[in-house]
Design a protein around this nucleic acid. Structure first.
Lengths: 340, 340
DNA sequence: AAAAATTCCGCAAACGTTTTCGTGTTTATA
DNA sequence: TATAAACACGAAAACGTTTGCGGAATTTTT
């Protein structure tokens, strides 16, 4: 790579000082018009751009936001990043993306790398492992130093920082109510292992709905899927039973789509024999047949709000108190729950 | 945010010079063990980390890779980023992601921002607008300065830089051949507007296959979809005709999934009445019914190779010549082309 | 006891920028 | 003609780090 042109080189070219060049390029009245013009012409010709690192160091500000997410090949997370990027860009920030790959160690090391001065603030969604081992020392250290930090989606409640979450309880509640309204009583829940916060919150909404609708809770209808094992086989055990449920609420799109596929394999008609709803973030639900009714999550909005909270923090326009913003999901009704 | 601890502060604490502190922390033999230990203890206690900006400025190296893609809410691009991130991380680099949103202006400004010293190299996939207006001045400027640059997927051939592309011609060729093999003759092509390179390359493969299989080319079977208009209506015109095609080759997943949906609406059986293949990058094809045969694109591998080329460039371990790596897509056969 | 070697540390430059303050020269004012 | 003002520019510090070199003090060698 060719060495970039600097103020010093321009200064040498004209036999003036660095400060003169700097001022000339900023159209300072301190510099004569003649000098100004020739310096600007020269700089323009060589496409001079101030070195960003030098500026960042001097101004003690990078205008970069660090984002750490568990994975990026995931419609929900990429949608959130899109929201973050959009808002951040409007405000003159760039985005540095790091992946924890659900690993605690990677999350810790990402945080360590990003907080060495290269970003002004951090947006994080917790790795699965972190949620599992409940070790938050790396975040507590940040908080102790008042480092601008916003958690989204997968958060830890007692950490003193801004948070943006989906109303998972409400979403599951709405979805389960909908299933009851179309006449279903034996509603199975396909959820995650307990330590995944969103999974247990959605379970909470599901239970709340059953109680409200005077439907007894049948623990045998609650299936905790293990993501590390074969999905298909696990979900098969939900449907290939003597007396299958008449509805399924799945906490994500993949579970729902698999359930749909398996139900059809068993010859059940949808939604009459069995209705299915999934939490969604992607496009799968739209293209299954029948298309799946879904709880949609507004990832873009979430990203924007997350970025907004963070930038307010960075620029000290935030209130002293930490905020927790809750985004309500929508129920998008499609044919998998549409009884004629 | 609390001010971070610096060498200077540690130096003041012990009444020694900054260089002494720096050396002590690096276990230099120039510093007495006593001084070394107390400085290290103090630094450790306050969790000292060298300021990355200062290091970057001094070393003239950021260890950051800039990535500019048209959009991120897209399975293919997020998979590529995943590959880039994985490889870059192994090599000690971080990744800064910017979105052009298919806009020429945004692409130009992203490049301008990223090349002001904040990244060591750039990975780009061209915005749609850039492909349209064929203006590559911003890249030519980079190339003139020998700035490390790698283009992937949506590339411009005559730019003098490394490139990684999918063998789109070969992929479409394979796919069309497969359709012929299962007995189809009236194969419609759902492609993009001409200026999208991948669209026209896939068209090329399609045509090549027809020629090879002695099937006459019927221009009326080639549909150029406009992404800015309603997909559903456009694709409807392909299938709701007097004499619909007996197969469809779609240049992306969404076109294919829509075609499938519409074909079913028209009461056609798949694959007997009409077989469908799509280029894919996402999960939709797996969950449609029947599942769609797809040309799969190996985005992760693409990302890794792209990052590898770039880092070799940055670290001068690359050969003088620019490389063009071609990744062959696979044909994943599913029920939409499986004739019993 | 003198010379040489070793130990321990500080100075200063370098990376590239901005900005305050100072200074010498020219021009305008009294 | 002396003084004040205006003009045009430079020096230097600051952001935080690394590192070659020099030097004082101590220790070892001859």
């Amino acid at each position: 790579m060719k060495p970039r042109i600097t103020l010093k080189k321009i200064a040498n070219e004209f036999g003036v000082s660095i400060s003169t060049v700097s001022k000339a390029l900023k159209d300072s009245h301190e510099i004569s018009e003649e000098t100004r013009e020739k310096i600007k012409a020269f700089a323009g010709f060589y496409n001079y751009k101030p070195n960003s690192l030098a500026l960042q160091l001097r101004n003690q500000k990078t205008s970069v936001i660090g984002v750490i997410i568990p994975e990026i090949v995931h419609h929900f997370f990429s949608t959130v990043i899109n929201g973050i990027e959009t808002y951040a860009n409007e405000k003159g920030y760039n985005v540095m993306v790091c992946l924890s790959n659900e690993s605690y160690d990677k999350e810790v090391s990402n945080i360590s790398v990003l907080t060495n001065g290269s970003v002004d603030g951090l947006i994080v969604s917790l790795a699965r492992e972190t949620q599992q081992n409940q070790n938050f020392k790396h975040f507590e250290a940040l908080i102790k130093d008042d480092f601008p930090l916003v958690l989204f989606d997968r958060v830890k409640d007692d950490l003193a920082c801004d948070k943006v979450i989906i109303d998972d309880v409400g979403g599951a509640y709405k979805a389960a109510n909908h299933l009851v309204e179309i006449g279903k009583r034996r509603i199975a829940l396909l959820t995650t292992q307990d330590y995944i916060t969103v999974g247990s919150l959605r379970k909470e909404g599901y239970l709340k709905s059953l109680v409200k609708n005077d439907i007894g809770i049948d623990e045998s209808l609650i299936y905790k899927i293990d993501d590390k094992q074969d999905l298909y086989e696990q979900i098969k055990k939900v449907i290939f039973v003597k007396n299958p449920p008449d509805a399924i609420l799945a906490v994500n799109e993949i579970y729902a789509a698999n359930a749909l596929k398996i139900a059809k394999e068993r010859g059940l008609t949808i939604p009459n024999d069995i209705a299915i709803i999934g939490f969604t973030s992607g496009l799968i639900s739209e293209f299954t047949s029948p298309p799946l009714t879904s709880v949609v999550q507004h990832g873009f909005l979430m990203g924007k709000q997350t970025a907004e909270l963070l930038i307010n923090r960075i620029e000290h326009t935030a209130s002293k108190e930490y905020q927790k913003e809750v985004i309500s999901p929508n129920l998008k009704i499609r044919q998998s729950t549409l009884i004629k």
